[in-house]
Design a protein around this nucleic acid. Structure first.
Length: 295
DNA sequence: AAGACGAAAGTGGTTGA
DNA sequence: TCAACAACTTTCGTCTT
């Protein structure tokens, strides 16, 4: 168990889904971007589960050929000795063809690029592995259905990522994703709607509640205040005040409101900064909460 | 001086004819 | 396809602490 650097409590909470460890007492995030320390092998097919096979890389959707290709090695024989010029030439030709076959057509090349982007971005955003994998699966099906045509690779990666984050209930805002991938927010939004229609993916609207823990820990807001913010949001939802309003705006307003109520006041600029909405929106949400929550 | 507040105009997306 | 519309942003001036 890890000791919290803020309050010294040893009661920490490991959230595998969000890849975070946070303190149960004060809510501070102790560790972010957890690395899965489990074994990096796993059965590559159902039959192998029982056999307990422990070798070989797993087939992973995050590499364009699922990590199953052969790599032809260097110019030494198995004893470490040199090999003849003729064999060397042959090896060279074999490698050449291997490369060509591995990334043979435009589809494969596209996938290789896309998965590279995905890898980079998901580490920037600190996303757990399962999101990365399901994103690459989504991307593959988009590719197979020829939905990439006329769209940028980054745009479709961004959209797939956005979809999978929402599905796994660890939403990232359009802002965060578009920034990480250098795609405009507009394009991500458009592509995301297109994909969800074409691939028949139905998403439940994001609940502002899902944003609270992450925003709160970035702001250094205590668990009590977080809990209060969540209560506020739930109450607002049940009164129908949130419909049509951006979930991150609602989360921002509720966090600000809660921080004022519990005398842990944060300034609007900081809240605006981490939640990706403007101070004006926070004020509007705040006003709305104040006017409607005194019952 | 920094932060909070509000007004007003602008922007991008959705909707319904 | 286009105009109306709501949500949100930008900008800026004023008030409060």
């Amino acid at each position: 168990m890890i000791k919290c650097p803020e309050c010294g409590s040893e009661d920490s909470d490991e959230d595998v889904k969000r890849a975070e460890i946070c303190c149960r007492k004060c809510g501070v995030v102790i560790e972010e971007n957890l690395v899965d320390m489990g074994p990096d092998w796993r059965p590559t097919n159902p039959g192998e589960i029982n056999k307990g096979i422990r070798v070989g890389a797993p087939a992973t959707p995050t590499i364009h050929d699922r990590g199953l290709s052969t790599i032809i090695g260097g110019n030494k024989d198995i004893h470490g000795g040199n090999i003849s010029a003729r064999s060397r030439a042959q090896l060279w030709r074999m490698r050449k063809w291997q490369r060509k076959i591995r990334i043979s057509n435009s589809t494969e090349r596209n996938l290789a690029f896309a998965l590279g982007d995905l890898d980079r971005v998901s580490s920037i955003l600190g996303l757990p592995r399962h999101v990365r994998e399901s994103t690459s699966i989504t991307y593959r099906s988009a590719l197979k259905r020829k939905l990439i045509r006329g769209r940028s690779i980054e745009g479709v990666v961004a959209a797939s990522l956005y979809i999978e984050c929402r599905r796994s209930k660890i939403p990232r805002t359009l802002n965060e994703i578009s920034e990480a991938l250098r795609v405009t927010k507009k394009e991500v939004g458009r592509t995301y709607r297109f994909l969800s229609r074409e691939l028949d993916i139905k998403l439940t609207p994001t609940s502002p509640v899902d944003y609270v823990p992450r925003f709160a820990s970035k702001l250094g807001i205590s668990i009590e205040t977080q809990t209060r913010a969540i209560e506020i949001i739930k109450k607002a939802i049940s009164k129908g005040l949130t419909s049509g309003r951006g979930p991150n705006g609602v989360a921002a307003g509720a966090l600000y409101f809660a921080s004022v109520l519990l005398t842990e006041r944060k300034n609007q600029r900081d809240v605006a900064e981490v939640t990706g909405v403007t101070e004006v929106t926070i004020r509007n949400m705040y006003k709305m909460f104040v006017n409607n929550m005194n019952s």
